[in-house]
């Protein structure tokens, strides 16, 4: 849906369905009570229980099991991130997942770890049109935080989808920003070459950046968002693109990945595998 904003810019409203998997918690440090077990703790009203399987973290990460040693050490606190078109065939939704392992005895605790994750589900068309805005939103607002024991269960399983207004970006602005990046940064050329080569060859590949390329995940997601925003609508492998941060595993297809623990000593240039 296009909406004309008061300043004349065109905006679109994006609806985000939400699903949380993990354990309920309480208190300032979000400690897990002894009685709390694993489960889906929040599900938007437009998602069905049948979606729980489709939106489970291992499935979205193309893993049999999500394990702590798959999380980049520098990403342990906030967790791993992935954005992609959902893996089921002909899926019409894109997903954004943040998943981590946190101690049951609270945020700075030393107890047993458990898995906590948060998923956003949006229409694949919105992801195709607004990758930069969605990645920026996910960076700032998608966190794997437990829901509270005190929250009403009926509310948690009937949560309203989150709605955001995003501005359509002028393609000339995108090109202008990318042109600057091509001159001033190390990431723009390999990223565009990677995407172009991926379209040509049709092969699976991963382009991995490290701490020398981006100082933070925020910078990485901003850069990748810009590159994806630049892709023409006819780009043939859009559905196979995944944006990954802090995860040592790369899904099949074309994967743009950031590992904050990776430094230049480990590899000279971004690696296309």
């Amino acid at each position: 849906m296009r909406i004309a904003a008061p300043n004349g810019d065109e905006t679109a409203e994006i609806s985000l369905e939400r699903l949380h998997y993990g354990k309920l918690a309480f208190g300032a440090t979000l400690r897990v009570p002894a009685t709390a077990g694993y489960g889906v703790t929040l599900r938007s009203c437009n998602l069905q229980p049948a979606d729980d399987r489709l939106l489970s973290p291992p499935r979205l990460m193309a893993l049999r099991r999500f394990e702590p040693d798959l999380v980049d050490p520098a990403s342990r606190r906030r967790g791993s991130f992935i954005a992609r078109v959902a893996p089921e065939p002909n899926s019409r939704r894109a997903i954004f997942l943040r998943a981590r392992f946190r101690p049951e005895d609270g945020e700075s605790g030393h107890g047993r770890l458990y898995q906590q994750s948060a998923v956003w589900s949006v229409s694949a068309a919105d992801w195709r049109q607004h990758p930069a805005a969605l990645l920026a939103m996910a960076d700032s607002e998608l966190d794997a935080l437990p829901d509270l024991v005190t929250e009403d269960e009926a509310t948690r399983y009937n949560a309203a989808p989150a709605r955001y207004l995003v501005r359509f970006i002028d393609p000339r602005d995108v090109w202008s920003a990318l042109e600057d990046a091509l001159k001033a940064t190390h990431w723009a050329t390999p990223t565009l070459e990677f995407l172009a080569r991926g379209a040509e060859t049709g092969k699976d590949a991963t382009l991995t950046f490290g701490a020398d390329d981006f100082a933070s995940e925020t910078e990485f997601l901003g850069a990748v968002g810009l590159a994806l925003q630049f892709l023409p609508s006819s780009y043939p492998r859009w559905r196979e693109i995944s944006v990954v941060s802090g995860l040592l595993h790369a899904p099949q297809g074309l994967c743009l990945r950031y590992l904050p623990s990776l430094r230049a000593a480990a590899r000279a240039t971004p690696v296309a595998a």
Binding site: Y21, K23, G37, Y38, G39, S56, P57, P58, R64, R65, F66, E67, P68, D69, F101, E104, H110, G111, R112, L113, Y114, Q115
Partner: peptide, 17 residues
């Protein structure tokens, strides 16, 4: 991996499989 997780304080087995 299971042994390593046990050494590091344990990991609650998830309900996804």
């Amino acid at each position: 991996r299971l042994r390593r997780e046990f050494a590091e304080g344990g990991l609650a087995t998830d309900t996804l499989d």
